[in-house]
Design a protein around this nucleic acid. Sequence first.
DNA 1: ATAGAACTTCAAGTTCACTTGAAGTCAAGG
DNA 2: CCTTGACTTCAAGTGAACTTGAAGTTCTAT
Lengths: 145, 145
Amino acid sequence: MTIGEMAERCGLATSALRFYEDEGLIDSARTNGGQRRYAREVIRRVAFIQVAQTVGLSLTDIRAALSRLPNGRTPTKSDWQRLSRSWRPTLDGRIRELELLRDELESCIGCGCLSLKACALYNPDDRASRFGPGPRYLLGDSSTA
Amino acid sequence: MTIGEMAERCGLATSALRFYEDEGLIDSARTNGGQRRYAREVIRRVAFIQVAQTVGLSLTDIRAALSRLPNGRTPTKSDWQRLSRSWRPTLDGRIRELELLRDELESCIGCGCLSLKACALYNPDDRASRFGPGPRYLLGDSSTA
DNA sequence: ATAGAACTTCAAGTTCACTTGAAGTCAAGG
DNA sequence: CCTTGACTTCAAGTGAACTTGAAGTTCTAT
């Protein structure tokens, strides 16, 4: 598969595929002329990367995860399952954080304490719980606030 | 209040406060010598910014939100409440997205379809649902995957 | 054989939310 | 008055995840 075909199938730009290769996330064979040719297997790899990003992982995290795939053989279904399963705790944790924030926001709307030290929302030390870099763009325009 | 005191109270760097001022998010008076002096009210404003970031808003979004505060008078408790309340839908939406992803991940772990078009996880058009830029750093090291 | 689309590399640019550095000025205590 | 720490501005740097541009090469269809 050429890079253009891959890009189309995966829904991203050719530049992104080249970038992923530079970053050691995917691999390709080359024609005599030096053009990239992708194995079918790579589609799955890219799919994994895309979903992992949605979960909130950085490319560094993802590279680490992918490095845990078997190196000799083509990864099997259960290899991928094992990797995907490892997202659960991250995802659950992220959801819990947001729910916590929502609930605290609820009480703070009630008490109007937004600037009080006592308020859990305004405790700088707790502010480590942000949500992660993830891809650059939000939900459309995010102009809700 | 000096910029150093503000920075300490708000738990961020002085450079961040200067940056927020350049960006039109906060304001300050100046001494004869040209140093910044902050009104108490600004603490609340900074608190709002910090919480809004945790909710996932960009500084641009936050600037827009802040511009809806009354310009003549010092904002009241209910002015702040009105603003904070507007976060609810965003937050709820974000939580729903993550839950959806978690559930789909669940079924995909079951079916192993990670690369199939049919799988909701691998539908490039649905991938608009990412989670937002937010602040740069994640939960510690995020090395869960 | 050749047009033209698709590919190649490499360097530099983009956005966000800041930080860092340089070079200099102000304010408060002794 | 003088030291010292805190402040000032302005320009440039950071990191993540790519994109864009330039200049050139390859592939494929006619």
